[in-house]
Nucleic acid binder design. Sequence first.
DNA 1: ACTAAAATGGACCGGCAGGTCCAGAAAAAG
DNA 2: CTTTTTCTGGACCTGCCGGTCCATTTTAGT
Lengths: 197, 197
Amino acid sequence: MLTTKGAATRQRIIDGAAAEIRNRGVAATTLEDVCRRTATSKGQLFHYFPDGKEQLLLAVADHEAERVLADQQPHLGALTSWSAWQDWRDVVVRRYRAQGVHCPLGVLITELGRSTPAARAVTGRLIEQWQGALRAGITGMQHTGRIAGELDADRTAAALVAAVQGGVAVLMSTGRSTHLEAALDTALLFLQGKHTN
Amino acid sequence: MLTTKGAATRQRIIDGAAAEIRNRGVAATTLEDVCRRTATSKGQLFHYFPDGKEQLLLAVADHEAERVLADQQPHLGALTSWSAWQDWRDVVVRRYRAQGVHCPLGVLITELGRSTPAARAVTGRLIEQWQGALRAGITGMQHTGRIAGELDADRTAAALVAAVQGGVAVLMSTGRSTHLEAALDTALLFLQGKHTN
DNA sequence: ACTAAAATGGACCGGCAGGTCCAGAAAAAG
DNA sequence: CTTTTTCTGGACCTGCCGGTCCATTTTAGT
């Protein structure tokens, strides 16, 4: 079992590892780095994550996935007006611009996804939830007549997720948020039924 | 200098490394793997890439960047009709669906981009060229009146690049091409001035 | 043919990072 | 208070992988 203290330590390790990875990347982060930052020892690390690095990384990925959605709230959960959509857009842009070159989740996935199906499950869930929230926003707007009813909500939500994802990808490799903004704005224009920018 | 044979070997190493990375990822690819696959030795590897792994990876990234654009030709260079755009879309989808979970360039960047500015330059150039080709296609269609003249060609091209990029990102972590298709199709609908799907 | 330069093969090294082990402290259980 | 479980610290091991070195072979140049 796990005592209160134990659970706290375990969490401290996850948080520390996440922070370390955010700053220096997965490849450059060693278990010893994590130990140093979290004031723990190898013994503890393997006590809480018997399967070693892979298990820890998976826990970090899970942790980061939650963060991604949490950071978009409360806007993502209440996309009931155009201004709410705009606020959401702004939050997304601001968040990723601040994060700059470091996308912990993306990096984790490219590193883990290939080997373990468990890692892919984490991303899968995240995308599904994300897309679901956007779809809910779209159908809500359709019910109040602000978005055309013929529009395929799920498909458009998927495109929106891809737009953000792609914008972030470009941001990660160029450091510029122009593409993220262009992608989001263009997608929102489409939602609004406009066709110029 | 470099003899014909030498140049061939050098190229063989790059090709082999690229293939190896496509199959198993950067992290899992060792110099010895590359040697084995290309039937070369450490001596040769460091003979042609004195700065070691980093230099090799950079060369691979460059190689892959060229491939990305080449694979989209001739369509990408002649986006002069809606059917040409559609063909381009199909090629992109087919290419990445075939590639599946493996995006060599993306992985290389997330691995190198952080450390070396040279790696970021490679992606930067690729994105710029890509976006340029799309922009040219858009302005061309504007001149023949098939796309509204008020539309911001550069910004929309940027959104298009992000759409592909994002779709591929999702494809990489889920294995499904639905998002890529949704993103591309939605973007094309926007270009056509339609607002439903 | 002779020489210089380039190409090749592979033995070897050194450090590092993931993982093991165990002994002792702290908590929980009774 | 005793016993059992959990937690903690860190010394240690080991395999791997990037990188070095040099002896040998091949090619280019004249």
